[in-house]
Amino acid sequence: MNFFEYAWSVLPALLSGAGATLGLFAIVIVLSLPLGFLVTLMAKSSIFIFRWFAKAYIFVLRGTPLLLQLLFVYFGLPRIPVIGDYLILDRFPAACVAFTLNYAAYFAEIFRGGLLSIDKGQYEACQVLGLSKFQTTVKVIIPQMLRVSLPPVSNETITLVKDTSLLYAIAVPEILHYAKVAVTRDFRITAFVVAAAIYLVFTFVLTLIFKALEKKYKRGSDIKEKK
């Protein structure tokens, strides 16, 4: 079999692994963005304990490897005395939990930066126009925060695609797993190339989506990006 014939023959197996990759990706994005925003709100809250919790959360989750967090959720949580029995998760759900918690911390930090970049004049304009705090947040602050946050969120999202390969560590069969199986079985590294191509297609499509989003929301942006 030549390269292409062989590549074609391993593709179905790898694509079946892509299901886990895509599934994890989709679940984590949908859950971690709102959770991240919640943590941002906590970090900005006037209630001390919320602020403290948010800061500690961001510090720990960004300061330790995702792989460690993944292993901890899957292997570690069930061993916690008393409550451990209630924390036994299957491999895939465990990965969803670990990834979501981790990515929420990154997104929280991005959103926090986005909020900081909004001029206080925006809040004042809302106040003198009679908008409530809630209306101000929803109609004026969040849209601007999202726009500023879009490029860094896009970066994190692409990192997430690649991070899904960490599923390998807790033996959830995904793209990389099937590639490794093929490589070991057939003594050919072509399957790794095919795996790389699948990841590239994912990240390429995401890049296009975010480019389009950025273009859509770029209109009229005079927000200074403070980093």
């Binding site: 001029d119 004042e124 304009a125 003198v128 009679g130 109609k139």
Partner: peptide, 24 residues
């Protein structure tokens, strides 16, 4: 009130800037 730095809403068109508060 009119501010030195305008404080228009940059993510909204001119007409939406005018309409936002009355709409709410």
């Amino acid at each position: 009130m009119v501010f030195q730095n305008f404080n228009l809403f940059p993510h909204m068109s001119v007409i939406k800037n005018l309409e936002l508060a009355p709409m709410l």
